[in-house]
Design a protein around this nucleic acid. Sequence first.
DNA 1: CACTAAAAAGGACATTTGTCCGAACTGCTG
DNA 2: CAGCAGTTCGGACAAATGTCCTTTTTAGTG
Lengths: 198, 198
Amino acid sequence: MSELLKMIRVNQEFLNYIRVLKSSEKGGVIETIEARPTERIIGQRAPIFAVYIVQKGLGKCYLTEDSGKDFIQEFFSEGEIFGEIEMFNNDLSFCAVEALTDMVIFKIKKEHFYELLEQDKKFNRLVLKLLAAKVRYTALRHSFNQSYPIETKLVRLREQVPQLTSLISKTDLANYLGITERSLNRTFNNLRQRELKT
Amino acid sequence: MSELLKMIRVNQEFLNYIRVLKSSEKGGVIETIEARPTERIIGQRAPIFAVYIVQKGLGKCYLTEDSGKDFIQEFFSEGEIFGEIEMFNNDLSFCAVEALTDMVIFKIKKEHFYELLEQDKKFNRLVLKLLAAKVRYTALRHSFNQSYPIETKLVRLREQVPQLTSLISKTDLANYLGITERSLNRTFNNLRQRELKT
DNA sequence: CACTAAAAAGGACATTTGTCCGAACTGCTG
DNA sequence: CAGCAGTTCGGACAAATGTCCTTTTTAGTG
């Protein structure tokens, strides 16, 4: 469970297999692109023509509500895929994806993605698996987020990611937790105070 | 989007196809079971040996946090599948599923589910599609839930499900929204007050 | 129809979180 | 190093939500 709730998503197994494919005779369908920090790779409500798999670096997947608030769904890193959700129901993207560090990303065009799904059993199975993991992760996170006070959430994050605040800006952290920066700061202070006393 | 955020999940397309399968020569692998209100179909943290598809009735999928609070992930009705998430990663179930009304449910054992995935392209595609829809739904709901006050959430639900309170108990509603019953009542009262004034 | 036990609702107060804005800090530039 | 612009932080107050427990309602039962 703790593994599953990691805030920074990775999928080494999938990445490995993409690399295998890339160096096979069919590897031509797998392109490589790069992105610099703050660069937007896909936009919210945009039509999607390819899936993307993170090879290196860190990105965020977030959506902007009508109220103007941003909510971060996931931070993803090595092996995480995005754009695939939209492929299956021909939907517009519900998240924007933006680079936080320099990123290197595999890109597979829609038609080739479909081909792989149909013709490559292992690929198909890995995609099923990763979708299931995303459902599970998203559901558990939602439940956790609703059920505990901010302080508990922060403590958990820090346990997972010791370099938390150096990796991720406070604004992003607040948007990931669905709270304001003010509340985030306050909670950090409370924690610090309490830790000093012991 | 409004369609996607329906609180009571259905999947007519999938149900239709299961019915087709059921009356095909391979239909033997699809069993039918029934459940009465309050009956638990799968338990939290239990190993799962089959997937289930709702044919009729209403159920809830919820998980109990360490704190003792219940959080309802979904209400599902016709065509919704459950137990499939656990199949792919060999996990224990993260939700319990319980009947709210009389239910009729298709049941497909693990090994037959795998067979179908491998041998039936259409089935495979439908499962991919439905997993993607679940990710999308879960993600959008989480974001919405974090971003708006209780009142907004309640108003939306009532628009969707006019018979809201007769269909679903207040306790369940509160657990679906991740709030206490007290807050739910208060919000209902506020709404009522305001509506009387106009 | 009065009486009671159980369930649902609501009052009073505490706590948490958000909003608004001024104070403190940072990194430039002249 | 003074002065300034942009950014971050935190104080003061407001609003939302939770906790606890009493009151009210409901649905039986003799």
